[in-house]
Design a protein around this nucleic acid. Structure first.
Lengths: 186, 186
DNA sequence: CTATTACTATACCAATTGGTATAGTAAGCA
DNA sequence: TGCTTACTATACCAATTGGTATAGTAATAG
């Protein structure tokens, strides 16, 4: 692996373990075995490095989500497709998604939040849009589509953070979808 | 307000806005208008300050949760009482609870996480215990009580972070409880 | 063969980090 | 009165922070 990629790889691990602010540039370059100008040559700044970590994979993933979340009259079907797409991305890149989800409940005035939220908010919008689009079908949502979207994502993300790396979690995902749509009493 | 309390108040605000690691001791004491030895006289270390922020109120709150979460044969009733207790605490101390919930999805190897998790895990345990105790009543939980507890807390906390400071959110809380137990399709 | 470009290291920068040694004041207690 | 305890400031500490000026090498393009 090239230095450019090693830097992203190491930074992703360290940020994930201890948080962006707790990790210094020096520790990253020391771990990789290069010097600081090497890092600054590729990524300009610490924030630039954080941005690069996400842009490596997540823009492609998001495009996939947008396609899967197109509402074609069958809400359950679209929600399933979207859910499995997100779950697959998590499996392919657990560190990246774990770091991403770290920012959902984090402080909103830090520099790093503002960068990461660019991608996080896109995913949230995709989900909200699906719920809103299916308004007609799910008449009983009663104008609380947004609330349902957020609740659904909260459950899904909490679930992925606990079991997202396991090999076979399809069964669990189905039960999550079922639980969300029909509650625990059915 | 005494310096001792001012320090906690200012630190709580700053930690909440930008995160524990992003805020320096100097900024805290400057904002309060005292010098560093004053802070270190009361709280020994930056982590000690963080700990003190939580111990000020949350230990009492947790005692309340433990009482409310006693399962007396009526799961819905206990879950309602516990939910409203948590919601009330959030209303009384939004900054404290927002900061607390910040750590749910955060990196797990940072010093500050380890401190805050002392309190966070207690709340989680209370909820899980309630779900497990009601196993007999809710036979259809099918040994997924833990999963349900986590999902429930994920939804509740996401909800509180969005609407927890509003004056009258009882209606919303009831709908959250209903949604969780009976799904969105009822 | 020359000039440019990509990449990397040494050595440095000012500013900030968490924390402290020393000393002082003010209040309460003997 | 005299002693102790609580509290606070000035001035300092070594270490680390994010970032850079300078210089070098290696490859590539003209």
């Amino acid at each position: 692996m090239e230095n450019k990629d090693k830097l992203i790889d190491v930074a992703l691990t360290l940020f994930n373990d201890r948080g962006y602010q707790s990790v210094g540039i020096q520790e990253i370059v020391d771990t990789v075995g290069v010097s600081k100008p090497t890092l600054y040559h590729y990524y300009n700044s610490k924030l630039g490095l954080l941005k690069a970590i996400f842009e490596q994979h997540i823009l492609g993933d998001i495009k996939r989500y947008e396609e899967d979340a197109i509402y074609n009259g069958d809400f359950t079907y679209s929600l399933q497709k979207l859910t499995f797409a997100i779950s697959n991305s998590y499996k392919n890149n657990p560190r990246l998604y774990h770091l991403l989800f770290t920012y959902i409940l984090s402080s909103k005035d830090s520099e790093d939040y503002k960068v990461v939220n660019l991608y996080l908010s896109k995913i949230y919008n995709i989900v909200v849009n699906l719920f809103v689009a299916s308004k007609v079908q799910n008449g009983n949502m009663n104008n609380r589509e947004e609330q349902f979207s957020y609740s659904y994502l909260a459950m899904l993300i909490d679930y992925l953070n606990r079991h997202g790396e396991e090999m076979n979690n399809d069964q669990f995902l189905y039960s999550l979808l079922h639980q969300f749509q029909f509650g625990i009493n059915s």
